[in-house]
Design a protein around this nucleic acid. Structure first.
Lengths: 160, 160
DNA sequence: TCAATATACTTTGATATCAACCTATCCGTC
DNA sequence: GACGGATAGGTTGATATCAAAGTATATTGA
């Protein structure tokens, strides 16, 4: 008894109800599939949409977003971003250029083609994202979103 | 003006605040990294933990969980599950066997080794998951979780 | 019976994800 | 300038993710 080596079905049930990891991953997969479908006419995934949209930002100095900057914003490993940019650069949607003053830094920018695709994707996003929020009723979506944001802040602070 | 082809920084900012896709993916990545760290001593990822824990269930007929059954539970594509099981089966943590009556169906089960690893992982999970919930204050974690669950239900119902 | 359809799962190919390790550049100090 | 440490990214290898197309088994209907 004291040296319990087997997880009972009751424990498994309670973990399945409580585990944030499980529910966040489930939601991530279901949402990604949904928006992958939405953006399929543009040959864009939901992750690529978030990445392209994130390039309309400035870094802490007001310049174009950098690799590290963007990876932090997306709560993504820097090496994941390197890989994720490759198909977008290959398609000519994103331009990557070394900073003039610090050759270590790479600055990311949307090309005109990237901007055009993003504008079309934004129209789709508005339609389908609005539908989801409407179905969830706003307060519930808001509570979920603020919980997610707070959780990421706390998780990232630890590793920072 | 009417044929706007460029996403302004203002629009990008509002999308970044509102987009559930972005915030759920961010949270999924941050949480996965965190629990990957937690489970690293057991050479287990957070996703593998959820998968192993999900095998302590019964399908709709009361039998051992099947592939499709488990994929649905995790809101995961069936082909993803096929791939995810391979390292676990190779390590001898999971056993996969064709159903006696319907050879199409594969039934999944934890091996004794799988159960032992899962029991150790569960102890770690309790400790670190409790800490996250405590930091978030319970009502906020609860609101987030129920929002996520409701969202997945609605998303999966559509595709069914 | 047997042909058509449906169901359960697999394989392949592309992208996503991260850890571990590596390279290039900058900065401070001597 | 040269060394040492710090910073910014890249590469490799393993797993995760899904779509498209495929295989095997079961069911249904003529």
């Amino acid at each position: 008894m004291s040296n319990r080596k087997i997880i009972s079905k009751d424990i498994a049930r309670s973990v399945a109800q409580a585990c944030l990891c499980l529910h966040v991953q489930r939601a991530a997969r279901a949402l990604a599939r949904h928006f992958d479908d939405v953006f399929r006419p543009l040959d864009l995934t939901s992750g690529q949409y978030s990445l392209l949209m994130s390039l309309n930002r400035t870094d802490s100095t007001g310049g174009a977003p950098t690799m590290g900057d963007t990876a932090d914003f997306l709560a993504m490993d820097r090496t994941t971003l390197t890989a994720a940019l490759k198909p977008l650069e290959r398609r000519g949607l994103v331009r990557i250029a070394a900073d003039e003053n610090d050759r270590r830094i790479k600055r990311l920018a949307l090309t005109p083609a990237g901007n055009a695709v993003l504008a079309k994707a934004y129209a789709l996003w508005q339609e389908f994202h609005g539908a989801i929020e409407a179905e969830m009723k706003s307060p519930s979506a808001d509570a979920m979103r603020s919980g997610l944001i707070r959780m990421v802040e706390k998780l990232e602070r630890g590793n920072g």
